[in-house]
Design a protein around this nucleic acid. Structure first.
Lengths: 204, 204
DNA sequence: TTATAATCTTGTCACTGTCAAGTTCGATTT
DNA sequence: AAATCGAACTTGACAGTGACAAGATTATAA
């Protein structure tokens, strides 16, 4: 099972992982509109039909990729929160800025996760990863609001409001549609974004 | 130039318009991921290469479609506003609900307009339509805030905040991601949406 | 009428995703 | 140690795609 150079072998050990890396590279370069399964195979140095064995079809590969994306998405938010003040508002803002940062750093992956019908969210791996991300949102808003969205519809509305704001900012910035914010220096931009996030999270 | 049945003719009169209708049908049925130029031609009852003459390539057709989408997008918001109370807040909410309604009624077209790299926003027709939609947003927020986003960065920030909220709601509802709001009865949902929109538009 | 240009068709190309059949090879059994 | 089995990967083929070139048809205008 061990090998130094996995290249020349027929059974090559962890092709699945290699294909996922190749797929992410393909996705960032070609964007989802021109994503090609054969292109992924070529990147991985493998025959054009090899991916099918691990992922079934294109959508299967994209589903696996979306799952990985969601896990990194949550991880990035957690990193930001560890660096922030340990208090409800600051933690919520940190998560939101992480959300937005992820979108701007991984534009194609973000689109795959939120604006594509190809990933199958019923599939176990992805369903789980997406649920974790959602539950994290509920937790963060719950902590800020001193309540539980799962039990209090008012807090749940705050959570949806916060999500919409953060997601809208992420999506519009990702699409290059908000030049006003884009052209601001990073620090000033994050100040404004923080203000908007808390606006959305706080009931009138 | 006149003809009752444009079908059997070689030069068929308004193929461009027919193709655009066919393209919209193709888009709603197949969604952008499986949109096919040849499928559009088939729908229009015309040879597979006919669309190229009017739109260049697929992206050209999608660009024209996105332009039409933006015009209908603005029109729907205007309709809602005419039915609403003539006052800043109510007018802003009406526009926002129109925005969201458009997304839910034309999911694939909405995705084409806001989550695709294929339409060319530098192209005249689309650039103009998109600008009109953006300017309308600035006007509506400006009226509500009693200011002009173009001259006051604070009001501009409110406009971006409002846009992000409305767009986030539209995109997430479109993607079927906000079951809490989706399962609410229409009236109750619109109440909550209205509240969120005004939250976003009002500075802390 | 004739020329000209716009409109549409036909044919072809490289590329795509998927499927079926074949090859290689690790692992298990005997 | 040999045989077997099944998983991992390849090869080859097929229909469908977007784009291009070349030809056919028709409106316009000279």
């Amino acid at each position: 099972m061990y090998e130094g150079a996995a290249k020349a072998r027929y059974h090559h050990g962890d092709l699945r992982a290699v294909l996922l890396e190749a797929a992410e590279a393909e996705l960032s370069e070609k964007s989802i509109e021109n994503f090609s399964l054969r292109g992924v195979a070529k990147r991985a140095g493998v025959s054009h039909a090899a991916p099918a064995h691990h992922f079934g079809d294109v959508d299967g590969l994209l589903t696996a990729l979306a799952a990985i994306g969601h896990r990194r998405f949550v991880a990035l938010q957690n990193v930001r929160q560890k660096r922030a003040v340990k208090e409800g508002a600051a933690q919520l803002v940190a998560a939101g800025l992480g959300y937005i940062d992820f979108a701007m750093t991984n534009p194609a992956l973000f689109r795959l996760m939120f604006s594509s019908k190809r990933p199958d969210f019923c599939q176990g791996e992805l369903a789980e990863a997406a649920t974790i991300a959602f539950e994290k949102l509920l937790d963060d808003v719950g902590r800020y609001r001193n309540g539980d969205p799962r039990e209090d519809d008012g807090v749940m509305a705050d959570a949806m409001s916060t999500w919409a704001m953060v997601h809208g900012l992420a999506d519009l910035l990702n699409g290059g549609r908000m030049k006003f914010l884009q052209n601001l220096p990073r620090k000033r931009r994050e100040e404004l974004l923080a203000d908007m996030i808390l606006r959305a999270a706080s009931p009138g």
